[in-house]
């Protein structure tokens, strides 16, 4: 198979060297998928689990995830915790400040649907009321493994979106990905 045919399938590595040959679009998608930088943005309990995911044992760096301190450099926003009416406008603003393409992970019950604060007077019942959510990770709070699963699913989605783009198909409809609760919660 010649280089040209192989190029159709994506990225190839030239044997014996550190050279990659790829179409620019492929390369972009590959980079986009494997270096999702996340916005450092913790709200409550889930933020502690998010920190634990980034720390020694779970080591989020393995997936190219890296916490950035500004929305201008972030690709994915992990909403980790409950969102109050007072906080919601700031989250919306942060989302708007992020460059395209951007993704949102709603981590935990509160960010997904209000969680235990379903009947609270000040808590917004789900962050999807004002920003589009790609992945819902259930749990109260979710275990780090579940968050990682959510991130991997999101990476798959980014690849699929790119494939469709390459083949001239319309962009797939963004159905929300739901990561169910497994085992004991975090």
């Amino acid at each position: 198979m010649g280089v040209k045919e192989r190029l159709e399938q994506g990225i190839i590595r030239v044997p014996g060297g550190t050279i990659l040959v790829a179409k620019l679009a492929d390369l972009m998608a590959w980079a986009r998928k494997s270096s999702m930088w996340s916005l450092t943005f913790g709200l409550s309990c889930c933020a502690i689990e998010m920190m634990a995911t980034a720390a020694s044992r779970y080591d989020l760096d393995r997936f190219g995830m890296f916490f950035r301190a500004t929305p201008r450099q972030a690709d994915v926003m992990i909403v980790a915790g409950w969102v109050s009416v007072k906080m919601a406008p700031f989250i919306k603003r942060l989302y708007e400040q992020m460059p395209e393409p951007k993704y949102v992970i709603a981590m935990g019950g509160c960010a997904s649907a209000g969680g235990p604060y379903r009947d609270s007077i000040t808590i917004v019942k789900g962050v999807d009321q004002f920003v589009p959510v790609d992945v819902y990770v259930y749990g109260c709070p979710p275990r780090p493994e579940n968050l990682i699963l959510g991130i991997l699913k999101l990476q798959e989605r980014i690849r699929e979106e790119h494939r469709a783009e390459k083949n001239g198909l319309p962009r797939p409809v963004r159905e929300p990905i739901i990561i169910p609760e497994t085992g004991a919660t975090g």
Binding site: F90, D119, S120
Partner: peptide, 14 residues
């Protein structure tokens, strides 16, 4: 402050 206020006392009443 108050960006994380939940009104928990009100919920606990019930």
């Amino acid at each position: 402050i108050g960006y994380l206020h939940r009104g928990l006392e009100k919920m606990m009443e019930r």
